[in-house]
């Protein structure tokens, strides 16, 4: 009995070996390095200088950092539910048997995910231009007043959130679609015979059986939304008036613009623990699926 367990251990680690080594060398070692460098002051061009917890002390008093953190959380709170619900919804609709041309629709919804984020951001920046962009042109046609979009301190962050959702919906939609394939058709057959409504179908069959996928999507969207960088950098560079200055931009700014690598690393460490905490909470909250 014991050797069977040991065999499985050996097999397990053998299978894990490439992933462990790869991730170990290129991600885990850098992570440990980043954690270490957060106790130094390093300007990238000269040797690092040990300053103990100096960076963390500065972090606590950094007004901008707290603002960035707050804006990141606000952004995530908008993006995560929207993304989850819309991609699940689309997956469900497209999984219906009566819908003709499913492949076409799937393909169309997946389109934004295919184009690189930089190009997507540029295209949307054009469309959302307050003076000459297509979005306002359309609104004007429907007699709705023009909006400032990315030039407004109140609208910029939510708008970028919407663009983010738009781009990623297709992505998570196909993840949900894959997950839906695991639900045996017999369950739905049985339910149909019992005369169950569509909503009940969803509540008692589909959603519970999607648990592992649900957890996955929830955790991943949380991680990704808190790491958002590219679209904000391209569309507003953290403006206007720092209203879209999220934490990833703050880290970038400190690392490369100010060459304060140690300080940026300390921010990244704090962000890491926040994300970690959130993920643990999310998984415990949805309970099983671990």
């Amino acid at each position: 009995m014991k050797s069977a367990v040991r065999n499985e251990t050996i097999l397990g680690y053998t299978l894990l070996a490439p992933a462990l080594i790869g991730l170990g060398v290129f991600v885990i070692v850098p992570m440990i390095w980043a954690f270490a460098i957060s106790f130094f002051q390093w300007d990238l061009l000269n040797p690092p200088r040990f300053i103990n917890i100096g960076n963390y002390l500065e972090l606590v008093r950094d007004e901008q950092f707290l603002r960035s953190l707050k804006q990141s959380l606000v952004f995530s709170l908008e993006v995560i539910p929207l993304l989850f619900i819309s991609s699940l919804f689309l997956a469900l609709v497209l999984n219906q048997r009566f819908v003709r041309g499913r492949p076409v629709f799937r393909f169309l919804y997946f389109s934004p995910a295919v184009v690189s984020m930089v190009i997507v951001s540029i295209v949307w920046r054009f469309i959302l231009d307050p003076s000459f962009g297509f979005a306002n042109y359309l609104l004007h046609w429907f007699q709705i007043p023009r909006q400032p979009w990315l030039s407004s301190v109140r609208q910029a962050l939510p708008v970028i959130g919407l663009v983010t959702v738009w781009k990623s919906v297709g992505y998570y939609m196909i993840i949900f679609l894959a997950g839906l394939q695991t639900i045996p058709a017999e369950y739905y057959e049985a339910a149909r015979i019992d005369g169950v409504s569509a909503v009940q179908n969803f509540r008692y069959i589909t959603f519970p059986l999607l648990r592992t996928t649900n957890i996955f999507v929830l955790v991943i969207t949380t991680i990704e939304s808190l790491r958002t960088f590219t679209q904000i950098y391209v569309m507003t560079q953290g403006g206007p008036a720092r209203s879209t200055f999220v934490i990833a931009l703050d880290i970038y700014r400190n690392a490369f613009v100010f060459q304060k690598m140690g300080y940026a690393a300390s921010m990244a460490v704090v962000l890491f623990f926040i994300i970690l905490l959130l993920s643990i909470v999310e998984r415990k909250y949805v309970k099983e699926g671990y």
């Binding site: 407004s152 403006g239 206007p240 008036a241 209203s243």
Partner: peptide, 10 residues
């Protein structure tokens, strides 16, 4: 830059 931003947009 921040001063300009604050004045123009905030």
């Amino acid at each position: 830059s921040d001063a300009i931003q604050d004045s123009l947009f905030a």
